[in-house]
């Protein structure tokens, strides 16, 4: 659906020389996928996301949207903006309206929808983001941190993007808030939206996404299915990412002569596999 070909991005930093933030990035986003983008801070994750969302233009390279190749970045950006919605880190900082309802309605109104259509959009996205309608008339600034974040996410969902990009959406939430948010993402994905989750929590990625794009120093290090990426512990360590505890345990066990499948990330699966392995050996 969206394809980036040989994308470079550089910007002028504090001095006169240019800093290259992205080097020769090639990637394809297919409809209905749940993709994770991982990488350390400064690896280019956010830059890729902003290019995909049509917010910044690459310095070089080709953008293909729905099979149509754009050499003119301005029209590419316009096409991308219509398709892609992006939830930035700490999205609650972008709320501005007097009421929750009006804030969520900002996107659909900009699209020029009539009142009834706007209303439908608002209600639908609010329910996707688990927001109760009682909150509609409240000021977004009165809500709790978790609620504010869900209002902000609903505000992006209301633009009905085909692709939803989220940059560290769970940052700063407590464990239960985190779990609830990830569950919402799974639901949004089931509704047919393509979801791209940017995160440095490898645990969150392991448990949710199907495919992981690993970035390091502006280059694509790996682009493969989740289980394949996690079997490559070396690459993860090179990108200074945290390896999930379960992966660590399985790695130690296998180094010590056990034979446990390496594509296991959840505690339940690991428990079953370990039980099975121990029974066999006993």
């Amino acid at each position: 659906m969206i394809e980036l070909k040989n994308i470079f991005y550089s910007y002028s930093a504090n001095s006169s020389e240019n800093t290259v933030a992205l080097k020769d990035i090639n990637l394809k986003i297919n409809k209905g996928e749940f993709i994770g983008i991982a990488g350390h801070t400064g690896s280019g994750k956010t830059t890729v996301a902003q290019i995909l969302a049509g917010l910044i233009n690459p310095s070089e390279g080709e953008i293909v949207v729905n099979g149509e190749s754009f050499s003119d970045y301005k029209s590419a950006a316009r096409a991308l903006r219509q398709k892609v919605g992006i939830v930035f880190q700490y999205p609650e900082h972008q709320l501005f309206e007097e009421t929750v309802y009006r804030d969520i309605a900002f996107g659909p109104k900009n699209k020029g929808l009539n009142e009834k259509e706007v209303d439908e959009c608002v209600r639908k996205s609010a329910s996707l983001a688990h927001l109760k309608e009682e909150l509609f008339d409240k000021s977004p600034f009165e809500l709790s941190g978790g609620q504010k974040r869900r209002v902000a996410i609903a505000g992006v969902l209301a633009t009905e993007p085909e692709v939803l990009i989220l940059d560290e959406p769970a940052a700063g939430l407590d464990p239960s808030g985190r779990a609830r948010l990830l569950e919402e993402l799974r639901r949004i994905r089931e509704e047919g939206t393509t979801v791209i989750l940017i995160s440095h929590s490898m645990e969150d990625l392991a448990e949710n996404v199907d495919r992981i794009i690993l970035l390091g120093n502006g280059e694509k290090i790996k682009d493969a299915s989740t289980s394949e990426v996690f079997q490559d512990v070396q690459s993860l360590e090179n990108c200074s990412l945290e390896i999930p505890e379960i992966t660590k345990i399985i790695k130690i066990l296998n180094e010590n002569g056990m034979n446990i499948p390496e594509n296991i990330f959840t505690v339940e699966d690991a428990c079953d596999a370990i039980c099975k392995a121990l029974e066999v050996s006993q």
């Binding site: 239960s176 779990a179 999930p244 505890e245 379960i246 345990i249 505690v267 428990c271």
Partner: peptide, 20 residues
């Protein structure tokens, strides 16, 4: 209480329940 435990602790807990 809306908290969690480290995954290693959780795994040990489950294994214990499974009789290990």
């Amino acid at each position: 209480l809306g908290l969690s435990v480290p995954h290693s602790t959780e795994l040990a807990h489950r294994l214990r329940k499974s009789g290990i």
